[in-house]
Nucleic acid binder design. Structure first.
Lengths: 252, 252
DNA sequence: CAGATAACGATCAATGTCAATCAGAAATTT
DNA sequence: AAATTTCTGATTGACATTGATCGTTATCTG
């Protein structure tokens, strides 16, 4: 399928930064002319920059590709977490969805089986997923745009958050650190998350058993204290064996 | 019977993200033409996005789809207006971009030829276009999400706007009424625009000669007064003959 | 500077997919 | 119970996509 191939080429180029036509053709299992055509379409989309004998990833497309890659890592675990979180929802609740690929799965689940909700979020991707759903009103936090995870941050966001109140907060594991424990939380994000917790009547943070990198993250310890102090109960979702198997090294 | 199959296809696509027609047909136990018909209905509902050989889940059906149809009407005029507005920009300005397809062209122009800017907007599409551009900081207004034009509205947005200040305001013609003069402004949007004007040091509203529907719109008169009172100068951009010709009946 | 090599673009045959029509089956209505 | 409506499945022609080939152009090297 063409769409899958385009996506594969983009992800491959994101990994390698640049590659030759032959390399791409072998990677995606297509012929050379097809790869050329695909690179043409990707170039018109602005995703890649074509060179003689190969192609490079476009600078502007890097963030987007990185987001897609992060979204696909541990996808089964994230979906399972999303389902578990979804079951906690009741009609006419007001919930806050944090920015992150794991929480995004909760949003997708809501889109799949809608129920009347008041949703607050600081993530543009979450807002997009939840647009145009009956009985789901979405309120987006304002603030400085952070392209890395399509979220808003900053003093404006915190001030706006202080005017809100919600029944339940879904603080994604990505906030603490997922996708290979390379994620370091910045100051603004930490403060915003702190404010979130103060505004939530009940906090739920789900920790997958395989995301044990919390112990690796120096920022995790104070957060765990904060969450425990706020009365957070950590739960574990179990993955089906084949789902866990097909993830393999993603745990990293 | 049919509803069950539609639901099954939706769930299957939700799990797999994308799948081929054959795959879906086998999964739900139906023939290929039936699957095609089902995908057609699901596409009109906005649940899936059909591709050649298969279909994908519609992640952000609302924003892009709602915009794309309107974005193509009077595209040449909007581009010309966007270029004219772009020339008014100077480095290190702080500007506000309103929600609308015309203003979106200004954002696209900025992305093509970036310059250091502080951009404020209440439009998710504008924010997306301007993400990850060097020296362009984007601040998004918060508030209740309005799916029609991917913007935020409401008291929260107004309150946030009152904390901001910008040199120049691009209040799109779409705010007053474009795309066939069927657009009626709602109360929240009117109040938000009013607040915008009070926060702008200089307001620029561009009116295309062909968008004469202002005289048809009862809401236009008070707005014109307001704009004139604020010192707005209305200008006209001239379209190249062929560009005007290729638009034809779009004027409506 | 010139030859050689590789890549690019275009064209063509082949495969697969899409859309529309038609016949049959199932469900609902009368 | 009969008839109408709706839905399903198959077929056909049109279209898109893919892969191979060829002529041209660009790049590399001696």
């Amino acid at each position: 399928m063409k769409d899958d191939r385009l996506s594969a080429i983009r992800h491959y180029l994101f990994e390698k930064t640049s590659a030759s036509i032959h390399e791409i053709a072998e990677a995606v299992g297509a012929s050379l002319p097809t790869v050329r055509r695909d690179l043409l379409t990707l170039e018109t989309e602005g995703a890649v920059r074509r060179t003689h004998g190969g192609a490079r990833i476009a600078d502007s497309a890097g963030i987007e590709a990185a987001f897609e890659v992060r979204e696909q890592t541990c996808i089964a675990a994230k979906r399972a977490i999303g389902l578990a979180a979804y079951t906690d929802l009741s009609p006419d609740m007001s919930v806050f969805l944090d920015a992150g690929t794991t929480v995004l799965q909760v949003a997708r689940r809501i889109r799949m089986n809608p129920l009347p909700l008041s949703v607050f979020t600081n993530c543009l991707a979450v807002a997009q997923v939840l647009t145009d759903i009956r009985d789901v009103s979405v309120t987006l936090l304002g603030g400085r745009l952070r392209s890395r995870n399509a979220s808003v941050l900053g003093a404006l966001a915190e001030r706006m958050l202080e005017q809100l109140w919600f029944d339940q907060l879904f603080l994604g594991a990505s906030t603490i650190g997922d996708d290979g424990c390379t994620y370091t939380m910045d100051e603004d994000e930490a403060r915003l998350n702190e404010t979130m917790i103060t505004r939530a009547a009940r906090q739920v943070t789900r920790l997958d058993e395989r995301l044990d990198l919390i112990t690796d993250d120096s920022l995790a310890a104070p957060w765990l204290d904060k969450l425990a102090q706020a009365g957070c109960q950590t739960r574990t979702v179990s993955l089906d064996p084949e789902e866990a198997a097909e993830q393999g090294e993603d745990a990293a």
